[in-house]
Amino acid sequence: MTSVADQFESKIEHGELPAPLPRWRVQAKYALLWIVFASFVIMGAMSSGVAMWFISDPGGLLFEYKNNGTLSKILDVLPLFWILLSLIMIYAAVLIFARAPRGYKYKTAVIGGALLLAFTALGGAISAAGLSEDIEATASHLPGYELFQRPRINRIIKIDQNGIVGVIQEIGKGQILLRDPGGVVWMVDISECDQMHIDFTKEQTCVRAFGIPSTTINAFQAERIMPCPRGIRMQHIQRVMDDQMKEFSR
């Protein structure tokens, strides 16, 4: 019986050997692999950046919650959508990396851990650079985004009767004019406000004021004033209020 080498030699001589895969196809395949990997890393870093921006919101956890424990509060305000997206990107990137030419040399836990650290560092940088808000605002136009965020939004903007939410229209001495989602302009007295966590240099800023509303005129005595939680926009507040109105009319 002839050896395998002899059989191959005979096939070469008779031109029966199929052509090998060209090198460019292999290179293109690996290039595509790394592009997909880089895309997952970029998306993961961006998601982490937005998640960190949400978590580091100074007003997020300060919201008034009644009958809720600390863990419940934390879970309520965690941007679960963005955290989940980051984790999915880590998983996808690990899968892709394992298919890279030398990817098998590293344990899955090591790759996953390294990606987690990278996402945290890059996410921190993105958040610090102030890009997270733009990313989140862009994502908010995606279909279905609000559906994912709705439970968090509903919980976080639930305001009791001693609160008011609106956009700053005008800033005066010791008072601000605030337009609520219903279009009503409130005169908010901030002269006795003991906590003001907002940047008054910005008009059109969405804020929350806690204090005592007047029963006769559109005036409000604020005791504490804070920015709206990150990611909360006027249309969200409007929607929640509309829901509340519908419930009230029933």
Partner: peptide, 23 residues
């Protein structure tokens, strides 16, 4: 075993461009 070896060498030949010279 010879059959398997022949098929393996054929696979290797077809995919020789995949071989990484650092390995």
């Amino acid at each position: 075993a010879e059959d398997i070896l022949q098929e393996s060498f054929m696979d290797a030949y077809k995919n020789i461009a995949v071989f990484n010279p650092t390995l």
